[in-house]
């Protein structure tokens, strides 16, 4: 079973030190496929110890960006540095530092889980004994012990996802590039993944991940990069989107009496809305929300729930998208 916090994944058994920190710097990178401009202008930084969420709708260029970071695709313009090294000119120096988890679920069908992981580890130049030990660690880490000697073709989607994650972690990478790592995972596995990522980031690794499940990213991401039509949202746009008024959900033991109570403490009726879930109030910022909450409590309302109606990432993404179309 996976332990919490997870055991330190390390390249060589016995050596548990995390690799030297390595950040990602992307500056105005673009890449097109014929007439399709998959990535138009992407710039961001991811520092060691952070978990950066790559957020954007389908077709916004997330996978293309990750392929360029994974040394598989050459940008048409712009620069990428991973641990200060250019993956375009020196891919052989970058590859041992990164772990890439593709969105495609490919695996060597005739190999067992164990031999597939051993094979991957040996491809980084490690000897047979070290690879055997590393494969055992990884199988434990991603909780595939019972399937270790089964051919990978029998794995379910979620199990293949775990195998793919283990493969990305094989060489104890300082930089992790994860494309939709949580898709296909059951809720327990998602929690385990979250804990694993938090543990890996705490060791000083740089983690960049894309996901559609924004609520999930909200819980792990320390930074966010918003992508739309191949362009990263500027810091100002993100700040503006974050600064816009947002809706907070409030519940109280008083039930429907909450409405009059809100008006009683001076909240304008226009800011209050109701739906099947109860009451929502538009707050300009967190200070505003805190003021409303303390006033409600002071007025004797027994508040049981007081939280933003949508996750931070989701709200920012929606605001950015709306801002574009407006």
């Amino acid at each position: 079973m996976t332990q919490y916090p997870p055991p330190l994944p390390s390249a060589v058994p016995g050596a548990s030190a995390a690799p030297a920190p390595a950040g990602i710097v992307v500056d105005d990178v673009r890449r097109s496929f014929g007439s399709v401009h998959a990535v138009r202008s992407v710039s961001f930084k991811a520092r060691p110890g952070s978990i950066t969420a790559l957020i954007g709708p389908n077709g916004s260029g997330k996978t293309t960006l990750l392929l360029m970071l994974a040394t598989l695709l050459r940008p048409d313009a712009g620069s990428i540095r991973i641990a200060g090294i250019d993956p375009v000119t020196e891919p052989h120096r970058v590859r041992p530092l990164i772990g890439w988890m593709p969105d495609a679920l490919g695996s060597w069908n005739n190999l067992t889980v164990r031999s597939a992981l051993q094979m991957t580890h040996r491809m980084y130049g490690h000897d047979r004994a070290a690879s055997a030990a590393r494969a055992e660690q990884l199988i434990e880490l991603v909780d595939l012990v019972e399937l270790a000697d089964r051919p990978t073709r029998v794995l379910s989607r979620g199990q293949k996802q775990k195998l793919s994650l283990a493969r990305a972690l094989t060489n104890d990478p300082a930089v992790l590039l994860l494309d939709e790592p949580a898709s296909g995972l059951d809720p327990v596995a998602r929690i385990e993944l979250r804990e694993l990522l938090l543990g890996l980031a705490a060791q000083g690794r740089t983690i960049l991940l894309s996901s559609h499940v924004l609520a999930e990213l909200d819980e792990v991401a320390t930074d966010a990069v918003y992508l739309d039509h191949g362009v990263t949202a500027s810091t100002e746009a993100v700040a503006r989107a974050r600064a816009t008024a947002r809706s907070w959900r409030i519940k109280a033991l008083e039930g429907a009496q909450l409405g009059p109570a809100l008006e009683g403490i001076g909240v304008d009726r226009a800011r209050i809305s109701t739906d099947s879930q109860g009451f929502s109030v538009t707050m300009t910022d967190e200070a505003d929300a805190a003021a409303v909450l303390s006033a409600l409590v002071a007025a004797g309302t027994r508040v049981t729930w007081f939280a933003p109606a949508a996750g931070e990432l989701e709200r920012t993404l929606l605001d950015l998208t709306n801002g574009d179309s407006a």
């Binding site: 994974a70 040394t71 598989l72 052989h92 590859r95 041992p96 990164i98 890439w100 593709p102 495609a104 679920l105 490919g106 695996s107 060597w108 069908n109 991957t120 491809m123 980084y124 130049g125 493969r167 060489n171």
Partner: peptide, 14 residues
């Protein structure tokens, strides 16, 4: 097509 070529190419294998 099987999605495994790229997983080899990101290792030290040339």
């Amino acid at each position: 097509e099987g999605g495994t070529l790229a997983t080899i190419q990101v290792t030290a294998i040339t």
